[in-house]
């Protein structure tokens, strides 16, 4: 434990680096995924293409992506923090595009027709009706993305990008167990805090989900009980 107290400034600094390496991909990934998810949802042909391509990107292990993207583009070196941010953004898009199009799928077609009948154009209907109603599914995807991005960012240390992953490699080289443990705990705590913030943000932006969830949960539980009896 003394190691942790003696090195709090180091852990704090690495945590800030880690936040930067994981929140930027999350934000960029979300902004890109909303229009891409809409296109994938709207056009069936594009959908299968988008799902296939993102599925393939998803499949490639992170360490390989951290090497192949800079080698193929030549825009930056392995060591550049942009490298990690781009790789994590690719993974974020791979998860979020599916969440957005699944979310749009979950919108009741009746509501879509009602809003059209009330005079909403396609653009305004998307932002005012469809995206908010797709919100809960998108939020679920965003939470998965946040947790996996934060834990995945540690792999950056293998190509020389310093964040909380530094505590793992440095701890192994110096054989300091508390250092490695501190790194694991810091990553998990960071992921939980961001998850909590996302849930709070969801309640703030989608207050109706709280009002309607309670009765619907009771109803679905009744169904389960009924089926079991």
């Amino acid at each position: 434990m003394t190691w942790v107290w003696d090195n709090l400034p180091l852990i704090g600094g690495l945590t800030l680096d880690h936040l930067r390496h994981s929140l930027i991909p999350l934000a960029i990934g979300f902004v890109i995924s909303v229009p891409l998810g809409w296109v994938a949802w709207r056009y069936r042909l594009v959908r299968s293409g988008v799902v296939t391509i993102t599925g393939l990107l998803y499949t490639i292990p992170s360490i390989a992506l951290l090497i192949l993207v800079p080698s193929a583009t030549g825009w930056y070196t392995f060591l550049d923090e942009t490298n990690l941010i781009v790789a994590l953004t690719i993974y974020a898009i791979a998860i979020l595009v599916r969440s957005v199009s699944d979310g749009l799928d979950s919108v009741d077609p009746g509501i879509r027709q009602a809003s059209t009948a009330m005079g909403y154009g396609a653009f305004r209907r998307f932002w005012a009706v469809e995206l908010p109603l797709a919100g809960p599914v998108v939020l679920a995807g965003l939470r998965v993305t946040a947790a996996s991005t934060i834990s995945l960012a540690t792999v950056g240390i293998l190509v020389g990008i310093t964040n909380l992953g530094y505590l793992f490699t440095n701890g192994l080289q110096r054989r300091i167990i508390p250092e490695v443990l501190a790194g694991v705990v810091a990553v998990v705590v960071l992921a939980l805090v961001i998850d909590l913030l996302l849930v709070l943000l969801g309640r703030l932006l989608m207050p109706w989900t709280r009002a309607t969830r309670a009765p619907s949960a009771r109803r679905s539980r009744a169904v389960v009980v009924g089926a079991g009896a």
């Binding site: 998965v144 947790a147 996996s148 934060i150 834990s151 995945l152 540690t154 792999v155 293998l158 909380l164 992953g165 505590l167 793992f168 490699t169 701890g171 192994l172 167990i177 490695v180 443990l181 790194g183 694991v184 990553v187 998990v188 992921a191 939980l192 998850d195």
Partner: peptide, 12 residues
């Protein structure tokens, strides 16, 4: 479990 970095767990 999703939040636990597997690389860190491995080294630990």
């Amino acid at each position: 479990a999703r939040a636990v970095p597997s690389f860190g767990l491995l080294i630990l």
